[in-house]
Amino acid sequence: MHMRKLLALLLLMCPFAFAQEGPGLGVPASPEEVAGWDISIGPDGENLPLGSGTPAQGASVYATQCLVCHGPNGEGGLEPKLVGGHGTIDTPNAVKTVGSYWPYAATVFDYIRRSMPFQLPGSLTDNEVYALTAYLLELNGIIDEDTVLNAYSLRAVEMPNRDGFVWAWQE
Protein backbone atom coordinates (compact mmCIF):
# COMPACT_ATOMS: atom_id res chain seq x y z
CA MET A 1 0.00 0.00 0.00
CA HIS A 2 1.24 3.51 -0.86
CA MET A 3 2.30 5.59 2.13
CA ARG A 4 -0.16 8.31 1.12
CA LYS A 5 -3.04 5.87 0.99
CA LEU A 6 -2.05 4.46 4.36
CA LEU A 7 -1.99 7.92 5.91
CA ALA A 8 -5.40 8.74 4.50
CA LEU A 9 -6.77 5.50 5.89
CA LEU A 10 -5.27 6.20 9.30
CA LEU A 11 -6.79 9.67 9.35
CA LEU A 12 -10.15 8.22 8.47
CA MET A 13 -9.89 5.67 11.27
CA CYS A 14 -8.73 8.08 13.93
CA PRO A 15 -12.04 9.47 15.15
CA PHE A 16 -13.34 5.96 15.67
CA ALA A 17 -10.17 4.52 17.13
CA PHE A 18 -9.33 7.21 19.67
CA ALA A 19 -12.48 9.09 20.61
CA GLN A 20 -16.01 7.94 21.00
CA GLU A 21 -18.75 10.43 20.45
CA GLY A 22 -22.38 10.26 21.40
CA PRO A 23 -25.44 11.42 19.52
CA GLY A 24 -25.61 14.58 21.66
CA LEU A 25 -28.98 13.93 23.26
CA GLY A 26 -28.39 15.72 26.59
CA VAL A 27 -31.05 18.33 27.30
CA PRO A 28 -29.64 21.61 28.65
CA ALA A 29 -30.60 22.38 32.25
CA SER A 30 -30.99 25.96 33.45
CA PRO A 31 -29.29 27.22 36.63
CA GLU A 32 -32.71 27.31 38.32
CA GLU A 33 -33.38 23.71 37.37
CA VAL A 34 -29.94 22.63 38.59
CA ALA A 35 -30.47 24.43 41.91
CA GLY A 36 -33.55 22.30 42.51
CA TRP A 37 -31.49 19.11 42.18
CA ASP A 38 -28.31 20.15 43.92
CA ILE A 39 -28.63 19.45 47.64
CA SER A 40 -25.05 18.37 48.27
CA ILE A 41 -22.99 20.35 50.77
CA GLY A 42 -19.25 20.64 50.25
CA PRO A 43 -16.84 19.89 53.12
CA ASP A 44 -16.31 23.60 53.73
CA GLY A 45 -20.02 24.28 53.87
CA GLU A 46 -20.45 25.17 50.20
CA ASN A 47 -24.14 25.18 49.26
CA LEU A 48 -25.46 25.31 52.85
CA PRO A 49 -29.01 26.68 52.77
CA LEU A 50 -30.58 29.55 54.70
CA GLY A 51 -31.94 28.74 58.12
CA SER A 52 -30.68 28.11 61.64
CA GLY A 53 -31.15 26.03 64.76
CA THR A 54 -29.95 25.70 68.35
CA PRO A 55 -28.97 22.66 70.42
CA ALA A 56 -32.12 23.08 72.54
CA GLN A 57 -34.33 23.09 69.46
CA GLY A 58 -32.44 20.07 68.20
CA ALA A 59 -33.06 18.18 71.43
CA SER A 60 -36.81 18.33 70.88
CA VAL A 61 -36.57 17.30 67.22
CA TYR A 62 -34.28 14.45 68.30
CA ALA A 63 -36.80 13.21 70.86
CA THR A 64 -39.48 12.69 68.23
CA GLN A 65 -37.41 11.81 65.14
CA CYS A 66 -34.21 10.06 66.23
CA LEU A 67 -34.36 8.73 69.78
CA VAL A 68 -36.15 5.47 69.03
CA CYS A 69 -33.18 4.23 66.98
CA HIS A 70 -30.18 6.19 68.26
CA GLY A 71 -31.10 6.15 71.97
CA PRO A 72 -31.26 8.94 74.55
CA ASN A 73 -28.60 11.65 74.17
CA GLY A 74 -27.22 10.00 71.04
CA GLU A 75 -25.83 7.14 73.08
CA GLY A 76 -26.88 4.53 70.55
CA GLY A 77 -29.49 1.78 70.49
CA LEU A 78 -30.61 -0.28 67.55
CA GLU A 79 -28.66 2.12 65.38
CA PRO A 80 -25.21 3.62 65.93
CA LYS A 81 -24.02 5.73 68.79
CA LEU A 82 -23.63 9.35 67.71
CA VAL A 83 -21.96 10.83 70.75
CA GLY A 84 -18.76 10.10 72.70
CA GLY A 85 -15.78 7.92 71.91
CA HIS A 86 -13.44 10.91 72.18
CA GLY A 87 -9.84 9.81 72.65
CA THR A 88 -10.56 6.20 71.64
CA ILE A 89 -9.75 6.34 67.92
CA ASP A 90 -6.06 5.48 68.39
CA THR A 91 -6.80 2.69 70.89
CA PRO A 92 -7.65 -0.97 70.24
CA ASN A 93 -11.25 -0.19 71.19
CA ALA A 94 -12.04 2.71 68.88
CA VAL A 95 -15.56 4.07 69.16
CA LYS A 96 -16.41 5.93 65.97
CA THR A 97 -19.07 8.61 66.43
CA VAL A 98 -19.97 11.93 64.86
CA GLY A 99 -17.87 13.56 67.57
CA SER A 100 -14.88 11.25 67.69
CA TYR A 101 -14.47 10.33 64.01
CA TRP A 102 -16.34 12.46 61.48
CA PRO A 103 -13.94 14.98 59.91
CA TYR A 104 -16.46 17.59 58.69
CA ALA A 105 -19.47 19.18 60.40
CA ALA A 106 -20.96 20.00 56.99
CA THR A 107 -21.25 16.26 56.32
CA VAL A 108 -23.46 15.87 59.41
CA PHE A 109 -25.88 18.45 58.01
CA ASP A 110 -25.75 16.95 54.51
CA TYR A 111 -26.35 13.41 55.70
CA ILE A 112 -29.20 14.18 58.08
CA ARG A 113 -30.92 16.25 55.42
CA ARG A 114 -30.63 13.67 52.65
CA SER A 115 -30.99 10.38 54.50
CA MET A 116 -32.71 10.86 57.85
CA PRO A 117 -35.00 10.02 59.53
CA PHE A 118 -34.70 6.58 58.02
CA GLN A 119 -38.43 5.93 57.61
CA LEU A 120 -39.15 9.38 56.18
CA PRO A 121 -36.01 10.89 54.68
CA GLY A 122 -36.32 14.41 53.36
CA SER A 123 -39.13 15.25 55.77
CA LEU A 124 -37.14 17.61 58.02
CA THR A 125 -37.01 21.36 57.40
CA ASP A 126 -33.63 23.02 56.96
CA ASN A 127 -34.12 24.67 60.37
CA GLU A 128 -34.69 21.25 61.95
CA VAL A 129 -31.56 19.88 60.27
CA TYR A 130 -29.51 22.82 61.59
CA ALA A 131 -31.00 22.24 65.05
CA LEU A 132 -30.23 18.51 65.02
CA THR A 133 -26.69 19.15 63.82
CA ALA A 134 -26.28 21.71 66.62
CA TYR A 135 -27.63 19.24 69.19
CA LEU A 136 -25.22 16.47 68.14
CA LEU A 137 -22.25 18.84 68.07
CA GLU A 138 -23.19 20.20 71.50
CA LEU A 139 -23.60 16.70 73.00
CA ASN A 140 -20.11 15.96 71.67
CA GLY A 141 -18.71 19.09 73.32
CA ILE A 142 -17.77 20.64 69.96
CA ILE A 143 -20.01 23.73 70.23
CA ASP A 144 -21.57 25.23 73.35
CA GLU A 145 -25.25 25.26 74.17
CA ASP A 146 -25.70 28.90 73.17
CA THR A 147 -24.44 28.47 69.61
CA VAL A 148 -26.96 29.24 66.89
CA LEU A 149 -25.98 27.04 63.97
CA ASN A 150 -26.43 28.49 60.49
CA ALA A 151 -24.50 28.53 57.21
CA TYR A 152 -21.86 30.83 58.71
CA SER A 153 -21.37 29.32 62.15
CA LEU A 154 -21.42 25.76 60.80
CA ARG A 155 -18.59 26.63 58.41
CA ALA A 156 -16.49 27.71 61.39
CA VAL A 157 -16.87 24.42 63.27
CA GLU A 158 -13.67 22.39 63.39
CA MET A 159 -14.19 18.70 64.10
CA PRO A 160 -11.75 16.99 66.52
CA ASN A 161 -10.75 14.31 63.99
CA ARG A 162 -10.40 16.73 61.07
CA ASP A 163 -6.78 15.68 60.44
CA GLY A 164 -7.25 11.99 61.16
CA PHE A 165 -7.39 10.86 57.53
CA VAL A 166 -4.64 9.90 55.10
CA TRP A 167 -5.37 9.83 51.40
CA ALA A 168 -4.84 6.37 49.91
CA TRP A 169 -5.79 7.68 46.45
CA GLN A 170 -2.92 9.23 44.52
CA GLU A 171 -3.14 10.42 40.92
Partner: peptide
Protein backbone atom coordinates in the same frame (compact mmCIF):
# COMPACT_ATOMS: atom_id res chain seq x y z
CA UNK B 1 -15.62 9.63 55.65
CA UNK B 2 -17.43 7.97 58.57
CA UNK B 3 -17.80 4.73 56.58
CA UNK B 4 -15.51 3.04 54.03
CA UNK B 5 -12.39 4.49 55.68
CA UNK B 6 -9.79 2.13 57.05
CA UNK B 7 -8.72 2.79 60.64
CA UNK B 8 -5.07 2.04 61.42
CA UNK B 9 -3.48 1.34 64.82
CA UNK B 10 -2.01 4.87 65.09
CA UNK B 11 -5.52 6.35 64.93
CA UNK B 12 -5.27 7.68 61.37
CA UNK B 13 -7.56 6.23 58.75
CA UNK B 14 -6.99 5.59 55.05
CA UNK B 15 -9.55 7.50 52.98
CA UNK B 16 -10.32 6.89 49.27
CA UNK B 17 -8.80 3.41 49.29
Amino acid sequence: TSKYTDLQPDGTAQIFS
